[in-house]
Design a protein around this nucleic acid. Structure first.
Lengths: 341, 341
DNA sequence: TTGAAAGCGCTAACAA
DNA sequence: TTGTTAGCGCTTTCAA
């Protein structure tokens, strides 16, 4: 037989208030408040007395009350896509951990909002309920409802990724440059026939990666044959593209992200096509799956956690009224591995 | 040249307060409050008038103020491991999405806390800062600091997973039964020589899975040869165990989770050992990687999102003062696939 | 059925 | 250097 639990309020944390502290010390709330905040003139003796008492009695100012008085929540939102298969991506987890880490340092907490392509009600709730002081948006779309809504609401926010919207603080890797660089290197190795497989063309990251690919092809010294497939991040599409690539003697399959790359590797494996002997493979984003592959795959390497840290840091800076750059690019690395040798 | 942004408070959301509503309607705050909450006597005419006005002018009560008055935050915490390689697990993402979904329905928000094996400071901050009304803990450890701290703090909480601690509301799958059932089926097929590979023995889930394995072996009608490896969720250990299994003519390798299973599959592949012809493989937890494998792997199937939903739902029920079962088991499914044929 | 007033715990002018 | 006082926006007794 199961045991049942009933809520018992007796054991709630005993909450001591600023008034209690003031009374105990025979001073006023104001003085206590000043001792804590460090603002306003106060005798160092009094301050120490207060600080000591607070420390000993483990007093913590109630942030709700503080928030009401200062019109702040001490919360920011982390907004990420909630669609299954996307939420899971380690990329977002790592960004999030960066955001959390940075928030923590400022005694802020992170409230999570999951949005779906056509449903940003969760974000709207949080904003209209005034539960946050700012937000970090995990990715950008073309014609992005989240961005539009956040701008309208006037709440400070930073996006991870790029957007054409004006006056939006953006943190991203320079995908155009990075992808261009990777492709240029491959072309210098003499490759003349490549395909690029991308996911949704509503994800701006895919558009910028494509742009990098195209620019490298465009500025190549020789004539290059290339094909680009958008919206092809499913097994069926990847399968057909790979089949076709094999048939057309494509020299290198370039994947916009690790998920697509994993599918490509899988498919090539099933078809018994050897990497890199029969066909080369490169990816614009790496991950564990790809790193541990045999042979390891040539990829671009970014630091998602750093994106989160930077985004949050900029957000706080902006909230505090500082001048903040419109766009920040974080570094990348080109990792040349066996898959393109 | 980059553009720089400076925070401009002019565009902040215009906040209309309960007083504004009262003034506009020529009634008192109290009446407005009553109309909204539905508590206390109020003329239906007045109520409608208020509701209508609120609707039209898009008034939202400030939850901070409400929180201060009612001593609530309207936030719960989702506590998950922050260690890299663990945070990423789709399991936690899916639980989290369940928790969020359930919270949303009650106009609660979810605040996220990442804890590390020996560092629960993030949880402590959130609790002592009184920023939450309750918490859902994503997994349980032996001798769990999180559980201990949450109990001491007196804050309502529910754990996903099991624990020996008394008076803790737990939501889990019955791993003992599920794993026992899967193994029993394999034994009925005539297998007589198996190994089980588990991760950390500080994770209670691994202990319960082991228990299920052992109980099935113990109650088998024939004599079964079996070996159990704990703390073996790294490539090196898995490699050695698999090598050894091949050498010892083990019939079936059972993996405590999908990550281990992926490593096992990979290793067998490298060694050119065919599944299921030369060795069979089963996993106590499934995932996309495993489902798409060729041949598909025999696994247990759970619904992590449902765990999150149930945990949050129990938490709210408990917060509201209801009687709540100490332990809730959610269903599982045994998926027999080609890997054990 | 409605309203006045006190209070939730804190901050911040303004006075002293 | 310290205290008084008036909020922040809401809920909730207690009166009317």
């Amino acid at each position: 037989m199961e045991n049942y639990l009933i809520r018992n309020d007796d054991d709630a944390v005993s909450k001591i208030t600023i008034q209690d502290v003031a009374d105990a010390l025979g001073i006023s709330k104001t003085t206590v408040s000043r001792a804590i905040s460090g603002k306003g003139r106060i005798g160092s003796e009094t301050r120490n007395k207060v600080l000591e008492y607070i420390e000993k009695n483990n007093y913590k100012p109630n942030p709700i009350a503080k928030g009401l008085a200062k019109q702040k929540t001490y919360n920011i939102a982390w907004i990420m896509p909630g669609d299954p298969g996307v939420t899971d991506l380690p990329f977002f987890q790592k960004c999030m951990s960066g955001v959390i880490c940075e928030a923590q340092e400022r005694d802020y907490d992170v409230l999570i909002s999951m949005v779906y392509d056509d449903d940003i009600s969760s974000l709207k709730r949080i904003v209209t309920n005034q539960k946050i002081d700012g937000a970090v948006l995990g990715r950008t779309l073309t014609d992005d409802e989240n961005v539009r809504f956040l701008k309208e609401s006037g709440i400070p926010f930073v996006v991870i990724g790029s957007t054409d919207e004006k006056n939006v603080i953006q943190v991203d890797n320079d995908h155009v440059k990075a992808c261009g660089e990777l492709i240029s290197i491959l072309l210098l190795k003499g490759l003349k026939n490549l395909v690029l497989i991308c996911g949704s063309d509503r994800h701006i990251v895919n558009l910028t990666r494509r742009e990098g690919f195209e620019s490298a092809i465009g500025s190549a010294s020789k004539k290059i044959k290339s094909e680009i497939y958008m919206n092809s991040d499913n097994e069926g599409a990847v399968g057909r593209i790979v089949d076709n690539a094999i048939h057309e003697n494509v020299e290198c399959i370039v994947c916009a992200d690790d998920k697509i790359c994993a599918m490509v590797i899988d498919k090539l494996h099933k078809e018994n096509v050897k990497i890199p002997e029969q066909i080369k493979v490169a990816s614009f984003y790496n991950s564990e799956i790809i790193e541990n592959n045999q042979p390891p795959i040539t990829t671009l390497k970014y630091d998602p956690r750093e994106l989160g840290i930077t985004a949050a840091s900029l957000l706080f800076s902006y909230i505090e009224g500082n001048e903040v750059p419109g766009r920040t690019y974080l570094p990348y690395e080109v990792m040349l591995k066996g898959s393109t040798q």
